[in-house]
């Protein structure tokens, strides 16, 4: 009851505040999801994307739904950007701004600016935060509550939202269905998400145990991917770096056993942002141990079901997006 009133009160306070999110790229949908979540709780919010992913990436158009895609380098784009800036009370900048966009935004110095970073440092491709070069006085600095805070220790953490409603049904079947969707094999400490040994390990696992590896043929939309995930028992995030990613969050929402290598600090960041009384129920594995972890799950479906129940319970109790989005509301409220 108290939570409901708190929620209502907070949203009413922000009812007359306009929040504009500006991102250089869709950033795998993160800014749009925040805007959608804010809108759902009654906060006026818009999202401007300054570009989409290139066509050859296979991701073009996947994350632009709910956002306004503009090109600030054109006269029309500049006009749209200026209109949006006029409208906004708070301008929430994500990751990076082109020099031209920064110049335009800087003119609106009466607005309140918030900066949120999504990328690590010293990675390949290298991201260097240029927040101090925009010439914009930011009032808050935010960072996703994943592995990123160690790169930006002074920034405040905010959640990465998953807007799917949780699926808490128990899976049937004697074969363990495992979804592993390796994204890219970039170099770098935190961006490297694959390991050349994994395909061989999974092949061996399928031969030895009642395991079905679910694979995707080409890029699919987030909605379709979530639907597939709900049919699986296990979602494997990357198990190389020690981080967790959106895959883990979606896996939890889909009621999967989530396997990753998230370290203590990543888990504590998630625990903090979700207000949970315990660390998230990730099943920890790395390349050396993933065979044992998965074979154990495959050979003991009761154990698997126990993990699924625990994950679903955790997600339901602490990670519902309607609750997590209040962290953003709190940030705006404190400005």
């Amino acid at each position: 009851m108290f939570g409901f009133f708190y929620w209502m009160g907070t949203c009413l306070m922000l009812n007359d505040m306009n929040i504009l999110h500006i991102a250089p790229t869709p950033l795998v949908g993160a800014p749009v999801k925040v805007v959608k979540a804010l809108a759902a709780v009654g906060v006026n919010a818009r999202c401007l994307l300054l570009s989409d992913y290139p066509k050859q990436s296979g991701l073009q158009g996947f994350f632009t739904d709910g956002a306004e895609l503009i090109n600030s380098a054109t006269a029309e784009g500049e006009m749209l950007l200026r209109d949006a800036l006029e409208w906004a009370d708070v301008v929430h900048v994500h990751n990076f701004l082109s020099e031209q966009a920064a110049l335009i935004i800087k003119e609106y110095s009466s607005k309140i600016f918030v900066y949120q970073v999504h990328s690590p440092q010293r990675e390949g491709p290298v991201f260097t935060p240029r927040v101090n070069e925009f010439g914009i006085g930011f009032s808050k600095y935010l960072v996703l509550a994943q592995y990123h805070p160690r790169h930006y220790p002074g920034y405040e953490i905010v959640p990465n939202l998953v807007l799917f409603d949780p699926v808490c049904e128990e899976r049937q079947g004697d074969v363990l269905k495992v979804l592993f969707t390796p994204t890219h094999a970039r170099g770098g400490r935190w961006n490297s998400k694959g390991d050349p040994r994994l395909p061989g390990i999974f092949e061996q696992l399928v031969r030895d145990c009642p395991v079905e590896m679910v694979s995707l043929k080409g890029p699919v939309t987030p909605g379709k991917l979530f639907e597939i995930r709900t049919q699986c028992h296990v979602s494997i995030d990357e198990i190389v770096t020690g981080a967790y990613h959106q895959v883990s969050l979606e896996g939890m929402a889909a009621g999967n056993v989530v396997v990753n290598a998230a370290d203590y600090f990543s888990c504590r960041m998630l625990q903090r942002i979700s207000g949970a009384d315990r660390r998230p129920p990730f099943l920890n594995a790395n390349v050396d141990t993933v065979y044992d972890v998965l074979s154990n799950l495959a050979n003991n479906m009761d154990l698997t079901m126990g993990y699924i129940r625990e994950t679903a319970s955790y997600y339901r109790d602490f990670m519902d997006w309607r609750k997590l989005v209040l962290r953003y509301v709190d940030v705006y409220k404190a400005l």
Binding site: V143, P153, E156, I157, R279, N286, D288
Partner: peptide, 28 residues
């Protein structure tokens, strides 16, 4: 100890200690 994956071992009195603040600095 698995020195291939971890580079240190931290033994905490209470690993699930509570903390205030939202920055990594405050957590550290």
């Amino acid at each position: 100890f698995d020195t291939g994956f971890y580079s240190g071992l931290a033994v905490l009195r209470n690993p699930d200690f509570e903390f205030s603040g939202f920055s990594h600095d405050s957590f550290i």
